[in-house]
Simulated scan of single mutants.
Amino acid sequence: MYGLVTAVRDLSLSVRRGEFLTILGPSGSGKTTALMMLAGFEAPSEGDILIAGKSVAAVPSYGRDQGIVFQSYALFPHLTVRQNLEFPLEMRGMKAAERATRVHSMLERVHLADFGGRMPSQLSGGQQQRVALARALIADSPVLLLDEPLGALDRNLREQMQSEIKSLHKEFGKTTICVTHDQEEALTLSDRIVVMRAGRIEQCDTPEALYDRPATRFVANFLGEANFLDDPVFVSGDERAGAPESLPMVRPERVRIASTAAASLDNADRRQIVTGSVEEMIYAGPLRKYRVRVGNTVLFVREHVASGQQVFTPGDEVRLDWLRADVRSVKA
């Protein structure tokens, strides 16, 4: 708690050995506080934290055997790259010769073998991130904590570092807990994702299950765009009557767009078909994104750009369709 504010409540979570688990949520959801308690920088007001079956709730951060990577990297600015990597080994009493061998091996692994003598200020953001990861891994701690590890990088560097982190996790097999607000990052890196909201776990599952079968409207919206089909134009009253608290939802990439003059669909009995008017078309490189008004609702459509594809502009009347089997029911 922070004064009268409870940042995290009723948090019960088990992390499997060697798993990459991401805690995902918007600002104020409690994800960073959860990580700070795991790291030992915050003490829980009640409950316990166990690592390998042993309580560490009362153990200070420096007494916990875990590596930590911060968003700001937190490299020692007055030490060279090599000295930054040597520091945790020296704190553990490792002899100089063994430190040098391990540092050299780790610098090669993160593709920085020629940068050991540089100062952190002489490195790019991506290189600093590699040093921070290397320093967290070099002491061979069983647990690795990542606090918004790629938040300071541009898109291209983030994608490169996502691949690097996945590779390092596969190679070292560390139990890794990552905190981020970046949905793409969480989906790319994780074995499981914990979605938090207002200090509580909203849903915990694999990336594919969370995206394809979100439990609530909040999760569906937070993990990408979602079309909610609660307007009577989409669902009949009989279908709504059985589950008043549920809300039908379909992802934008499951929706197809075509001209109203297009040929009839062969499997129309298995599809939901509606007509509407294009309000906006956004070209996004490999994708085109449409906003289409159907009755009182605006639906989102995403389709991959292809040669010879018909392009629709605002004002065009179009037909939208999707498989009924692709509709998911979420808690409203």
Rank of each mutant, 00 (worst) to 15 (best):
D321W: 13
S264K: 12
G295W: 00
E280T: 15
D316E: 07
N267P: 07
V318A: 00
V305H: 13
A332W: 05
D326P: 08
A306K: 13
D269G: 05
I282Y: 09
I282T: 14
F312P: 06
N267A: 13
S307R: 14
G276V: 03
V278F: 05
A261F: 00
V274W: 09
V330G: 06
T260Y: 05
D316M: 00
T313L: 01
Y290G: 04
S329C: 04
R270M: 02
H304Y: 07
F312M: 01
T297Q: 12
R270D: 06
A263G: 12
E279D: 10
D269I: 02
G285P: 09
R288H: 15
V292D: 00
M281D: 04
V301F: 02
V298C: 06
G295H: 10
K289T: 03
I282A: 14
Q310S: 15
G315R: 05
G315V: 03
D326N: 14
A332F: 01
R271Y: 01
E280I: 04
D269T: 08
G276C: 07
R324H: 09
A332P: 08
V301P: 00
L320Q: 14
V330F: 01
E317S: 11
D321R: 09
R271W: 02
V330W: 02
Q272S: 15
S307C: 11
E280P: 11
Y283E: 07
Q272I: 02
Q272H: 15
F300S: 11
L287T: 12
L299E: 05
L287S: 10
E279C: 06
L265C: 13
T313A: 09
R328S: 07
L287V: 08
I273R: 13
I282M: 13
V327L: 03
R302K: 12
R270K: 13
Q272K: 15
D266S: 15
